[in-house]
Write a protein that binds this DNA or RNA. Structure first.
Length: 767
DNA sequence: CAGTGAGCGAGCTTCCGCTTGACTT
């Protein structure tokens, strides 16, 4: 029985490959890495040349046993893990753990899952590349050293801090530094002048041109003076400039660009995109979704060309192969594309259909012709000023790839001018209909979204396709960063309008600072970041990863010894770890805000044991300071005295009801009235916790009691049938139970309820 | 879930990358 065993990393890949190879081949999966560093004693014997201590994690034991069984009966084992640093290491660990003898072990690689590529791989096997394995070990050990030596310093020196790492801490730094840019940003306003012109000879048809003055005005008086000039001026077309141009499609998706576009076009979070893509991959509908490559297989390029020609005609087809440009790309896989281009749509839920459609269009567009455009610029001259008005328009002469796909931009409303310019000739006279000078404020760099953070991380070369989503979850789970909204504020802007020869000034309002699902640093994130940057500036430098990647590459090329590289890194690093542990002060981010006007005591903002607090007064033998927690959206870094003192006004008594005190405060779910140990929410936008009256509080209490009564359908002792947000349910001993569909809750008897409770209490236990 | 905060200090936490489920909301 001569059986060939092929081991790949992913089970879905195993299934596909087995179809291509004959029945002499059994294809199984390792489910990624099968060994990792032990967590005991850092998992590294530092004294002995950084010798790693590898263990098989509990959740991998079953897989390893299966692999051992298969390997024992196979006469030849083909290690087909990915062709990159990590893949090579997986192959090596397999050799070690499965005790594979060299004579029956072959290492093969392929970048695309096509019959051709796999057959070719099988016909040209090689051995394990030990230099590449060493580069991976260096990467792994370095990450462990950084993470496991610095995190414990944080536990000691920063309250509530939890972790640090080569990647997560730089991601955090990006967010903290961006926030500081925004905090210190001072908006400046200037006036932009826009004119709406009518072609003089064509007044009836109403052909219009919108144009902007080539100059901005910093002061309102200057803008007004310019409009006064306009009132007396005559206008004409001074110049017309027509420029042809082309636009090319974006390359097919990588993990990073898929996450960005799915966020911009479909509103998916980074994690959501990955889980939907995973399902598409497992269903055999798309290629692998964790990739940094923009390569397409020849087969994919050829079938795409065929389909594009059929669907849109020959002139829309333009096969291309894109070069991967991102830093540190390892290109073990293809770009993310449909498994079968012929399938324009798929079965599945809405999310799956939408994501597939996006991938199909992006892939197709990448294989289509450039769009041909014509850019028209018009200069409108003024008789009494040398400041012209300019108009620009773009006409698509041939749509090419734009027929199926247009990439979105991170910046809203900057997708080019869609203005249409009527046919005009040089020298044509024009009349203004309306000329408006409107104040416009500059804005700071935008806060990161999950997707734009991924983009930035990729640019810096930190993180990998498999870790972008997890890292973003980590910094949020640690409480360093939160994805939040901000309602924004209104701001007045001055507008001056010239129309029919007269000038009028008005004031408009606009929204500023509105945010939706943006990444904000939290106090603890800011303090952790400042501590890390203060003591380990070299490691949390934006270029650190790029620099050590150069070293890893040298190891992979066999030009450098991996232990030596680690030695060079570790000696100064560990010195710094020791000295920081010994010398660094505890960091609470404390800021003195001023003095309490009532008592004269100092007021501080700082990180307390349970979170950010304001403290009034110092601690002494006979006096305890007073504390109040910061609210959502407030930062130690920016809170001011007045705001801080406000926090001490709550909770406050608003009166008595039924013989017991009513207290108003603000909790995690917003403002509340507390009465007899029960909480009643204040109405959003209607009630103000600082001036709500006792009568209103009683009203709220009664109202809530009333709706609670309506919620209850029936009751048998401990068993209560209730009307909830998601329909009727049973509540019993603090647990909720779903009522099966099609059951009328009114008709339930006590026994029926017990049955439902018993049936459902088996499932869903513990965390 | 709507509190807490001093100081002492047991026992715990933590990294990045490669893979899926098995969980809960």
């Amino acid at each position: 029985m001569s059986v060939n065993l092929v081991i790949v990393e992913s089970p879905a890949k195993a299934k596909t490959i087995e179809k291509f190879l004959g029945k002499d081949f059994k294809v199984v999966s390792s489910f990624g890495h099968i060994r990792d560093l032990s967590k005991k004693n850092i998992g590294i014997d530092i004294e002995n040349g950084f010798k790693p201590e590898y263990i098989i994690p509990d959740d991998k034991k079953k897989v390893v046993n299966e692999l051992k069984k298969h390997a024992a009966t196979a006469s030849r084992v083909w290690l087909a893990s990915d062709e990159d640093r990590e893949g090579e290491a997986i192959a090596w660990h397999l050799v070690q753990v499965l005790n594979l003898p060299p004579e029956k072990t072959k290492r093969i690689v392929f970048h695309e899952i096509t019959k051709d590529a796999i057959e070719k791989a099988v016909s040209s096997p090689r051995g394990i590349n030990h230099s590449l394995v060493d580069a991976q070990q260096a990467r792994r050990v370095l990450d462990r050293l950084v993470g496991f030596e610095i995190s414990p310093i944080l536990w000691k020196k920063v309250p509530l801090a939890l972790s640090a790492g080569r990647v997560q801490s730089v991601a955090l730094r990006l967010i903290v530094e961006r926030e500081r840019e925004i905090i210190s940003f001072k908006p400046v306003s200037s006036f932009r002048v826009n004119g709406e012109f009518i072609i003089d000879t064509d007044k009836e048809k109403g052909a219009r041109i919108n144009a902007e003055a080539s100059k901005k005005f910093s002061h309102e008086e200057d803008a007004k003076a310019f409009l006064e000039l306009c009132a007396d001026a005559s206008f004409k077309i001074a110049d017309i400039n027509i420029k042809p141009g082309t636009r090319s499609p974006a390359p097919p998706f990588t993990t990073s660009t898929l996450q960005q576009e799915a966020y911009r076009k479909l509103g998916f979070s980074v994690a959501q995109t990955m889980s939907v893509a995973q399902r598409l991959y497992e269903g055999g509908m798309i290629t692998y979704m964790r990739t940094d490559s923009t390569n397409l297989s020849h087969l994919a390029i050829n079938t795409a060309a065929k389909i594009i020609k059929e669907e849109y005609g020959d002139k829309y087809s333009r096969p291309r192969q894109f070069k991967t440009r991102s830093k540190g790309a390892q290109e073990a896989h293809e770009a993310i594309r449909p498994a079968y281009m012929a399938k324009k749509s798929i079965q599945g839920n809405q999310q799956e259909k939408k994501l597939y459609d996006l991938i199909w269009k992006r892939t197709a567009a990448s294989q289509m012709s450039d769009a041909i455009i014509e850019k028209t610029s018009i200069t409108i001259g003024m008789s009494n000023s040398d400041t012209p008005f300019l108009a620009q328009a773009e006409v698509v002469k041939f749509d090419g790839f734009l027929k199926v796909y247009r990439e979105s931009s991170d910046i809203n409303g900057e997708n080019g001018s869609d203005a249409v310019i009527p046919p005009v000739k040089k020298g044509m006279p024009l009349e203004y209909e309306k000329i408006t000078a409107q104040e416009k404020y500059t804005s700071p760099a935008p806060r990161y979204t999950e997707a734009s953070l991924v983009k930035k991380m990729e640019e810096l070369g930190i993180g990998r396709p498999s870790t972008y989503a997890p890292v973003i979850s980590t910094i949020q789970n640690r409480g360093y960063v939160a994805r939040e909204d901000r309602p924004g504020e209104s701001r007045h802007i001055n507008v001056i309008i010239l129309s029919g020869g007269s000038i009028k000034a008005t004031v408009k309002t606009e929204k500023t600072g509105f945010e939706k699902a943006k990444l904000f640093p939290k106090d603890i994130g800011i303090i952790v970041n400042d501590f890390l940057v203060e003591h380990f500036s070299n490691i949390f430098d934006y270029n650190f990863t790029a620099n050590i990647e150069v070293q890893f590459d040298k190891i992979a090329e066999g030009e450098k010894d991996w232990n030596k590289m680690l030695e060079e890194f570790y000696v100064p690093f560990h010195d710094k770890v020791s000295s920081t542990l010994k010398e660094a002060d505890r960091k609470t981010g404390v800021r003195e805000l001023g003095n309490d006007p009532d008592t004269g005591e100092p007021v501080y903002a700082k990180m307390g044991r349970y979170g950010p607090v304001i403290q009034i007064g110092d601690s002494s033998e006979d006096k305890k300071p007073r504390f109040a927690s910061l609210r959502k959206g407030q930062l130690i870094e920016t809170i001011e005295l007045e705001e801080a003192l406000e926090l001490f006004k709550l909770p406050r008594k608003v009166g008595e009801y039924e013989g017991e005190e009513m207290l108003v405060g603000i909790g995690r779910f917003g403002p509340y009235v507390k009465h007899k140990n029960k909480f009643y929410s204040l109405k959003k936008g209607k009630d103000d916790p600082y001036d709500i009256t006792g009568e209103r509080a009683i009203e709220l209490i009664e109202e809530k009691k009333d709706t609670d009564k309506k919620k209850e359908i029936k009751r048998f002792g401990d068993i209560v049938v209730l009307n909830g947000r998601y329909g009727p349910y049973i509540s019993y001993k603090k647990q909720n139970y779903k009522i099966p569909k099609g059951t009328d809750p009114e008709s339930l008897s006590e026994e029926d309820c017990m049955k439902i409770i018993k049936k459902n209490s088996g499932s869903g236990k513990k965390k």
